[in-house]
Write a protein that binds this DNA or RNA. Structure first.
Lengths: 211, 211, 211, 211
DNA sequence: GATGAATGAGCCTTCATTCAT
DNA sequence: GATGAATGAAGGCTCATTCAT
């Protein structure tokens, strides 16, 4: 059992990472100062260094767990054989969107392109691996769903598909709305968007296969 | 007529904004220092302040002209009655993409959603106006093209359409490829992407109108 | 009699001062952190403050006992009337060297000339007194040994003699060799060095006295 | 010809290095802060960075020129064939002493043992090379002067000789007296000290050679 | 007695910006 | 018009030290 002191300590640690997440999200990694984080977390800036090695460590701790969770979840969805390929793609797509919007802060810094900055490489390594893995899962789902064999075509339609996902996430990345309200309000739009893509891509592939 | 000195002066001014544009593009606004800009422009860092109020002013001056040009161009395309509505939408869409990729640097900072950061608001005002105007032109083209009367539907399909455009631009925003090579390599993908959207949206609207 | 707890307490106190001594010796006073000392002593860094007022106090506690011991030992050697004056000077000289090399760490900070730094003055007071006393003992041995009556001459040959002692100690002050190995390896050199001084000074004094 | 501005600039640069020299001398490299240096130099601490890369650079700039000068001077003295070997050794010895006392500040940090700290290695490299070169010149003079062929003996008497030089320098390293007054007051002592060594060493070598 | 939690002071360094020439 | 000189504000980070448990 945890002592009262340990509890308070854990709380402080959480407050710090929470504040970091919020500030990174709203201002970007570089613009945020350790002192700002401390202020929002209600502690001295030196306290941060008790729990986290340095500023970059905050980013790392912030990003890894959710990314791993998403990866795992997407993998398990892809193995649900009771779902049709289309349903699987649709599900992991919506899950991906939900995740990215839930973790808007991290998304901006890590999933967002430009992810691998030279000076962050070290701690970003694990994160980059994760990111690649996630995109591979999406690509795999796409190939199965549309039964695309031609690699060039797969690449093209993957791109087109990803444009949409990226666009969705990016559009709402800086929204201040809660994830619940956001999903509730826009889920129909997102689904409609996937519909549009499914129909459009299917039609195009039909045409391609005919020729 | 301009004296020789005035010519030289104008040249310096141009060198500065050119350097700023290149550096902002390749390293991001925050990471660039005034001294770097000055070095690339071949002048002292203090000279910059003769022509531009401050660092932010550089960004502003950098962003407005292209945005205005884009706006004008889009307006003129929309008035070409020899084109079908679909061709007009397709043309301004590709133009928008081309523009955003050409001005990746500015896009990131201004068209990019996060645009209105508190500390930039002042100089961003003019830019924000421009941005809204541009999106309205796109929306107008969409309404005409798909003959959507229901406002709610228009909003939804506009969003879906924009997701794609945003996604495209965002994906290549940080690419180091030249605009020429980028467009040459990916134009088919972009066009295919618009195809997919046109087909998908059209199909969906048909279904909607039937019910 | 001491309780078991008191014993443990005394042990901790000793571990701390021992660790401090070692670390000050190998890294210098400023470079050592309280946390390092605590780690090496096997306790929390806050525990140090239970036994010692502050970092400087550690230095003080570290320096006084050995200095007092040296002082006492030198005094007792000077009183051994079974030794010739020259043997007495030689013995306390070697003893002084041995001591300084044994306590290289403290030497650097305290015997070393620079001793009286403004910010250390307070705690250095006792130490400074000790230092002066030690040098007076050496000077006394010199006067007796060379039978120098002229104060000016005494001062000059004392200086010359001290130059040598200082030089010896200073040269090996930062050596990582153990005191045993150091003395074993260099004792002949040290003795030869004293020989050289004895001969040189004696000869010079003869000449002086003749004139 | 230098403009008034350039003159002032040079002056500032000199004030900075002068202040750094004094402060490093009296407090040691680590204990001195850039702000202290700036304050003593009468400028802002940021100004220092205009003229010197960083704190370490100050140390480097402070140490190299004098060391090179000393090295050159010692070499030229050794080549004066109109002087006897003894006179040459005596001259470079006094020169060495004069130099070390003149540059007391640098001596402490660089000639002083412990010179090569890991984190300073890079900039200290040139300095270390210089130091070694200087000591080799002294050794060479010793060998010639006392005609010592046996390497072991040379090593021993070199050590003894160096003890004295080190001792002299170290004793007055922290004196606040001017170099002029210092040399004037103590030159006889230094010369007497060298006399003592010459006589002592010569006598000892005679004895050794007899056996 | 002993410790983990927390902090204020301070350090080196960078940068946008102003001033005097 | 143009520039080198100079600076204040700020940032990441470390450390000796105190406090509550």
């Amino acid at each position: 059992m945890l002592t009262k002191q340990e509890l308070r300590s854990q709380e402080t640690k959480k407050e710090i990472i929470k504040a970091a997440g919020q500030l990174f999200a709203s201002q970007g990694f570089d613009s945020v100062t350790m002192r700002e984080i401390a202020k929002m977390a209600g502690c001295s800036h030196t306290t941060i260094y008790i729990y986290y090695k340095d500023k970059e460590d905050l980013l790392h701790q912030l990003a890894m767990p959710p990314l791993q969770a998403l990866n795992t979840q997407m993998e398990s969805i892809l193995q649900q054989i009771d779902l049709s390929p289309e349903e699987r793609l649709r599900t992991i797509s919506l899950e991906f969107i939900r995740f990215c919007l839930l973790h808007r802060n991290i998304y901006t810094t890590f999933i967002g392109v430009k992810a691998s900055r030279v000076d962050l490489e070290e701690s970003a390594n694990g994160i980059n691996t994760m990111r690649i893995s996630i995109f591979n899962l999406l690509k795999k789902a796409l190939r199965t769903c549309f039964a695309i064999e031609n690699d060039e075509h797969l690449l093209m339609y993957s791109r087109i598909y990803f444009f949409n996902l990226h666009g969705i996430v990016n559009t709402y990345t800086h929204s201040e709305e809660s994830i619940v309200s956001l999903m509730e309000r826009l889920l129909p739009t997102f689904e409609e968007s996937l519909d549009v893509l499914f129909i459009g891509i299917s039609e195009k592939i039909k045409g391609v296969n005919k020729n």
